[in-house]
Amino acid sequence: MSAEVAYKQVFGWPDSLKKNPTHYCPGCGHSIVHRLVAECLDELGMREKTIGVPPVGCAVLAYNYFNFDMVEAPHGRALAVATGIKRVHPDKLVLTYQGDGDLAAIGTAETIHAANRGERITTIFINNAIYGMTGGQMAPTTVLGMNATTTPGGRDPRLHGNPIDISRMLAVSNGVVYVERCAVSSFKQIRKAKKAIKKAFQCQLDDLGFSIVELLSPCPTNWKMSPKAAWAWVNEEMVKTYPLGVIKDETGYEDKK
């Protein structure tokens, strides 16, 4: 028999994710972000102290995948629902997981006011510039020239208005302490995104204020691209409208290199 070998686990299924296959399309960014959120909660030891609010949108069934308490919110109202939860359980980590339509169109008021109250809540904001669940209609974040099923010929600012940069808008509020925009369209960016998410959670745990991480996320199905082309489109085109990086950081944390 072989000599005893000491094994060390270097990779596994996060406790914060249930072992359910997701319904997300191939190449969709949601699965990646779910995993990042789960890994961060595991590392912070917060799974059993977390209450999450999924959006109405593709991630509406997130409670089938996340392995912690969750409550569904009406479309756009996640941050109002989260406010109610956080006020009852100030000692719990409360997160919302929202898409661009949920957060930056129908829920704009709830988003801005929860952030501006400085609610100790963390928002994970998936920006894929399209309405995924309803089948590819224009999102508030649809970039100019981009085709959606309700922007024939591409988004025209005169006809359809301009893409909204809600993260930068939120950054001006005193209640908001940390805003970073990342992407899940390259391995390097995915690693950055995880750091940002963890930092945003930490910011809540330290009672600093509202934190949000925006994630540019591919939607190959509604963009009508292959997953590979969708990654490339995020990296080459989408970042022109939504440049990556820290938008606001008043946490005072020293980032470990």
Partner: peptide
Amino acid sequence: NMVLGASAAG
């Protein structure tokens, strides 16, 4: 919706 969240939280 704040009511909804607070109620869900007990």
